[in-house]
Nucleic acid binder design. Structure first.
Lengths: 189, 189, 189, 189
DNA sequence: CACTAAGCGAGACGGTACGTCAGGTCTTCCG
DNA sequence: CGGAAGACCTGACGTACCGTCTCGCTTAGTG
């Protein structure tokens, strides 16, 4: 049982090149060939370790996300949700950051296996953190006991995805606040 | 100024072939070449009238959607929302129907022009109908006056998109009802 | 039954490019990719009409050989054979001309179908011409009646191939004359 | 000045694997990678000791040829030549044996250095043996004194190569005999 | 008889070319 | 003259091998 003798330098070069090219050319025009060329790497080295450009981008995202997965708890549920929703809205509004999200989204729409990885490695931890905060809010009486936490987080994040996906309106801080307020109305005892 | 002498028979054959192939092979493996072959049509005929496979699929969808754009109004807002949300959830849950939605979504994520068309021709009319029903609800006192209708429809449809997009849970009738109930809590006076 | 709508300009460009590259780089380093690039042609266009680089070179050779297939008949058999054998030796001695022969030889050694084409389109006509001249020689009493003409032409050309193939000695005019004399000894009545 | 600590077991395995694969797949599809895999050997071990697959095959041939290099001398020149020419024809007619010859021939056509090795280690000794026998024939008056021995051996072997190389007729025992007879006609006093 | 350098298997690596596929354009010919 | 048919150039695909380069492990020959 020997560890795979993988070249870390190449791995880093590939992930970096992929993210650079992604912002330069967009996902559909991103090619494995170009990533390999930019990274100074043989194509085979990419195909040896990843199933395609989608998997490369996913790993680049996972690599760049710190495993913090914990929400602030100031005692004020509404304020804390505002913090996280504002951050999320800002992320989707930023062309640079949302480029990678767009790329991954495209790929997951037709790659079931990749979709699972995204869900388990990126999405679930994030949502779990929010659910934890909501549970704490229930303990302090700031949220109703009966609510379905899964549904609640969807109530918070779903509208953002909807607006982003369908380009159906601006993604501003004011929008984030309004969204939190409306959601709070639904879950406050 | 002559009207374009367009062959309706070819047009129908192309749209039909496109939808068939879409469910058979999935969007990324759908090719203009295959559509042309299946439809018994030259490739040029497709490129003459559409910008690419995305535009073909969009026209096929628009073609198949009746321009009803009106929600039932039984007087019971919750019940009427339940009807439309249940229908939407069912549509996303149906592999056959959601295949075309998935295809269009993929394409819009990287084609700004197409995204606009989708938004204006498919999405907005649907949401407008819901907003109309909500406005009627405000008139009868079943919904608060102060609510942002754009945000409210996102509260209703966003979670569905979120769950569908990220494959983060089942899309059932029960889910639809629960969603409507939670949203109603947020907007009831 | 429509004639294949083949682009003659491309065909010529490919054959020319192939011959150029052959003399520049040698057959093993000759690639379809390079031929396509030099000819300003898509690779597919080559693969559409030929089975590989070997077939291209063959067509180039066939194209450049005039269909003369007739030997001079001065009445002096020995002199006429000298003419053709000298020419053959000179051809094999010329690095430029023998490069294409070398290429075809390599390919035929492992491609049965190509070998047949070479035999039928290039070799047999040439040998047939010599056999015709030998037959005429028999009529004038300069060659024995009993000889096997197939074997006789091999006696004339075989040594040249042998020496060329195995690089086992110089290919000079003197060699050609000596060879003809020895062969004449074998077939003179 | 230490002797190279070369692993004889690996060497044997490589040569054996190479010959096996050669008959299975043909020379152009023979790869160093496959030889290494079949032999249970690292690629490096092959490249350490040989310049490529051509050199491996050559060594395998040299290894399998006994260094006998002497012709029988029964006193009857024609009969002795018949023996050796029949054997040569049989060798070229045998698909198994001629496969290695074909392989080496391909390689020598583009590798000058290898061609020299083949000529010096395989061809010349064989031809020298025939020349020796011819010289003995001159002594006993069965061959003319004036003939060029180099040319004479080419007269014997050249036609076989020609017929084999160009697949221009069958290689039978009868052919061998006919060839010897015609050549004898040329060199008998 | 232990040490130590080599040869060794394995296989990752940067490359090049393969032969295929589809893109989008252009040309020919038919109805 | 629109449309079918399909050749064309282009460029990326994913694969196969090339020849080089570490890795540890095994194995002599020496000191």
């Amino acid at each position: 049982m020997t560890a795979p003798r993988r070249n870390e330098r190449s791995r880093r070069a590939i992930l970096t090149a992929a993210l650079e090219l992604l912002t330069e050319t967009g996902y559909p025009d991103l090619t494995v060939e170009a990533i390999a060329a930019r990274a100074g790497v043989g194509k085979q080295t990419i195909y040896r370790w990843w199933r395609g450009k989608g998997a490369v981008i996913l790993e680049a995202m996972v690599d760049s996300v710190p495993p913090n997965a914990v929400l602030p708890d100031t005692g004020d549920l509404r304020a804390d949700l505002r913090t996280v929703i504002r951050a999320t809205v800002a992320e989707f509004a930023d062309p640079r950051l949302s480029a990678t999200t767009r790329a991954i989204t495209i790929e997951t729409l037709s790659d079931e296996a990749l979709a699972e990885q995204v869900r388990d490695q990126l999405l679930r931890p994030q949502l779990a953190a929010v659910k934890d905060r909501l549970r704490a809010g229930q303990a302090t009486g700031q949220a109703r006991d009966g609510i379905d936490l899964d549904l609640t987080v969807e109530l918070l994040f779903g509208p953002i995805y909807h607006r982003w996906l369908l380009r159906n309106g601006p993604l501003t801080e004011g929008y984030a606040d309004e969204l939190v307020d409306l959601a709070m109305t639904a879950i406050t005892p």
